[in-house]
Amino acid sequence: MTYVQFLRLRKALTIYGIVVGSIFLFGLIVGHWPNARFDFGHGLHHALTETSSIPKSIPMSGVLFLAAWCAIIFATVLSTSLNKENDGVEMVWTKPIARERLAVQYIGLDLSAILVAFACPAVLCIIAIASVGGLEYLRFDARTWQTLIIGLGTAFMWYGLVQALTSWQRGRGGMAVGLSWAAAFLVLSFAEATHFVPGPLHQILLAADVLNPLAYFSSYSLSGYGAHASPVLPQVFAGTEMRSILTWSIGFLGCAGAVGGWKRLEV
């Protein structure tokens, strides 16, 4: 029953792979120009070690941070999969399968694709690091797992929220995705601007940030290690465990709401 969604995801992942691969290759070449050569076996390694550009410690959390951002973007692209069906929903709703079951299968497939979208840049980064002989400097620590869990949780949370907002509507899915990005950045920016935003309004923005996926992930940067309090979330949600639980819980609730909304849609 999910054949069409499978085809849709295959197409999306192909485009994603081409874009991520191209950006990655471009970045690799430009970043090390003019010493870089397309000889990943020796040339690039030689050039980079000569210029001493390999850091002696490469945090894996940085690689996962980058991969999570890619996965978040990809997740928002997929987050209207139920909404996409609604224009010709007679096609899938007249198949011998319960709507909620079909919706869960769609979401399951989407989440698998998001995992692939997460893994793709991570693997590319590791290949690049390995190609310049930096694999031995790759460092795994507690922050690696935190980034993995919260990064994927943020992607899932965003996916679930947009699904919940769009699954019961016909059309306007693309607009909802665009607005979600704009809203996420705006609320985050204003919540961070403690000097300009009056106290009560700032408290409201902090409360709104509980539903803002970016608020959970923005505190993870390439610099600094270990979990630290986010300035854009109420203090009670600042702990790493709490943020992990919240992202996954909100994502789950969003998906459950999306399934319910889709089931109740009338055409």
Partner: peptide, 16 residues
């Protein structure tokens, strides 16, 4: 859901 194992519907507006 099981009804549709043996029921076909062609809508007025294309749902393809």
């Amino acid at each position: 859901p099981q009804t549709f194992e043996n029921l076909s519907y062609v809508p007025e507006r294309s749902a393809l």
